[in-house]
Each structure stands twice: as C-alpha cells, then as structure tokens.
C-alpha cells in the first residue's frame, strides 16, 4: 500500500454525527452528540464509561443510534455502503487465531470483495505497511500483543478505507511498539486518511492527534485542537514557564502586564506565570521582552497537554450548572 497524499483533498468532513443519542434500556450511553471528523488524526478521549466505545460502534455500523444521524462519506453508518469506507480495529486480542497473519489479512480482503491477484497484492502491500511481511506466515495465536495489533491494523487497512477507527490501539504495547505504531498512524494521516483513535493514554494524544474529542458521561465536552480547546477554557488561567536571566528583576515588571494574573519565581532562572488571555499575553510579552531587554531562554505553556486539558474539562463538567 502506498501512503501518499492524494492529489485532491476533500473539504467536506468524512464523518458527520448529528445529535446522536444511544440508550441501552434506561442507561443513556450517548447524549445528543454532534461532531465532524476530517482527514488527520483525531483522538477520542474520556474516562471509562464515558461512551467512547458506544460512539465507535455507532461510527463503524455495529450499533444504530436511538436518535440522531451518523453519516460516513455521505452514507448512513449502519449501511454496508458506509462500511466500505471504514476500517475498524476493535479493542482486545480476539481474531481468527487459527489463521496465519497473511491468511487473516487475505480473508479480510476477500470479505471486502477483492479476489485473486488484487487481493494478494493488497495483502502483501498492507503487510509491508504494518511491518509484518516477514512474520505473517505464523498462526496469529503465536503472536505477541504488538504483532497482533499490527495484523489487526492490517486487516483494517486492506480495503484502503477513508476512515480508520482504532479502539485503544496502544493498549498493552511496549514503548518501542507504541512509537512504531504512532509513526504508522502519522503516515496514514499524511496520506489523507481520517484516523480516529480512542485512547486512555493521554500523553500519546499530545504527540499524535491534530484534533481531540473529549467525551464524558455520554456528552461531548469539547472538540478541536488542544490549543483551541485550551484557549476556550478562559476560566482556567494558562500556566506558563519562562526561563530567563535575572528572574527576580523581571517578575515585578511582568505583573504590570494586564494579561498576567500571577508570577512565581523559582531560582535560578524560572518564572511561573498564570495568564488570563494567552493571545494577548503573547503579544504583550513580545513587546515587553524587547522593551526590557529580557534574555529569554525558554517560553512554554505547562498545562496545554491533553491530560491537563482533560482535567480542566472534567472539573468544569463536574461543577453544578
């Protein structure tokens, strides 16, 4: 499989979820979720029981929404037409274990309607992509967790889907394996595919996802890039770390800026700031540094990670309205 960006990129989203709700008896697993997913890596983040798996099931046509609409490439996600555009790598280790890795991918190619030489070509290409070409003749039951994950990814990719849905793909994988899979996801995203990754490992999302969906108690708390979401959380001052020469001298001057709420000095060279309006701060700080001839070694926001943003969102969600 070649991973090259397509000549034309579609502007319309691949996935459109409009006001989708899902009940299981009295339990409301999803509550009026609306979202769009386009090319690139989208992270789906939320605590256990947040409704992540339910959302993935709806997107992959395993379940039907009780209310609302879910469209994949313009088709109802429940229908077979939509599934032709979706590759799904489910949670867990279960596969047809008695088959070899190559056979498993070949069977999946067959299940998508590819025959003969085309199925073989796709199988070999996808095995190469996931780095399993040399180990694909062993039965899947003999594979390690990482190898299983790669083969599962291979079966999801064999029909060249526009949307790749991955449920906890990094779970139980060692750091080296994670890095390898992360690189693969990035390459797929660069090739113009929409990659939706559900994960508990928030740090991974920092590096991988261009766009994050935060879900909690069946509701979509926020969606967008981490920076955008962090900017919107204006009731939580942005925490900044500035490393510079003579921090004790700079600290009182910084307090004079309107966007700065507090400054803490941590010798020998660090300043920790709480900033109310980040955009305004960046503008003010630029002028300030030039005017006061501040020798800045480092300027970094310390709470824009997925984990920090997620904590803020959770805290906000738990507040009484």
């Amino acid at each position: 499989m070649t991973l090259e960006r397509p000549a034309t990129t579609e502007s319309s989203p691949l996935v459109e979820v409009r006001n989708a709700s899902k009940w299981f008896g009295p339990l409301m697993a999803l509550n009026g979720i609306s979202l769009e997913i386009g090319p690139g890596i989208t992270g789906l983040v939320g605590p256990n029981g947040a409704g992540k798996t339910t959302l993935l099931k709806l997107l992959t046509g395993q379940s039907q929404a009780s209310l609302g609409e879910i469209q994949v490439c313009g088709h109802d996600a429940w229908l077979a037409k939509a599934k032709a555009h979706v590759g799904f790598c489910p949670y867990g280790d279960a596969t047809w274990d008695e088959l070899s890795g190559r056979r498993l991918v070949r069977v999946t190619a067959g299940l998508h309607g590819f025959t003969g030489a085309e199925a073989r070509r796709r199988t070999e290409s996808v095995l190469e992509t996931v780095g399993m070409a040399d180990r694909a003749d062993r039965p899947v039951r003999t594979y390690s967790k990482g190898m299983r994950q790669r083969i599962k990814l291979g079966q999801a990719l064999v029909h060249d889907p526009d949307l790749l849905v991955l449920d906890e793909p990094l779970n139980g994988i060692d750091p080296v394996g994670r890095e390898g899979l992360g690189d693969l996801f990035l390459r797929l995203a660069k090739a113009g595919k929409a990659v939706l990754i559900s994960s508990h490992i928030l740090n991974e999302m920092d590096h991988l996802a261009d766009h994050i969906l935060f879900v909690c108690r069946g509701k979509l708390l926020a969606s967008g890039s981490l920076e955008t979401i962090r900017d919107v959380l204006d009731d939580y001052p942005l925490k900044m770390r500035i490393s510079c020469a003579a921090p004790r001298r700079v600290a009182p001057q910084l307090m004079a800026l309107e966007s700065v709420k507090s400054v803490t000095v941590q010798p020998p060279e660090d300043l920790f700031l709480e900033v109310q309006n980040p955009n305004r701060f960046y503008a003010e700080f630029g002028e300030f540094a030039t005017a006061h001839d501040v020798d800045v070694h480092r300027l970094k926001a310390t709470d824009t990670s997925a984990e920090a943003v997620f904590d803020y969102l959770m805290e906000r969600a738990s507040r009484p309205e």
Partner: peptide, 15 residues
C-alpha cells in the same frame, strides 16, 4: 463469544 463477529460485521457485505 469469540468476539470475532465484529470483523464480519465491519465489512461491506450487507448483513
């Protein structure tokens, strides 16, 4: 029970 039905249901073959 083997949790492999999902692979069949994820394909583009109508149920």
């Amino acid at each position: 029970t083997g949790q492999t039905l999902v692979y069949l249901l994820s394909t583009s073959v109508p149920r």
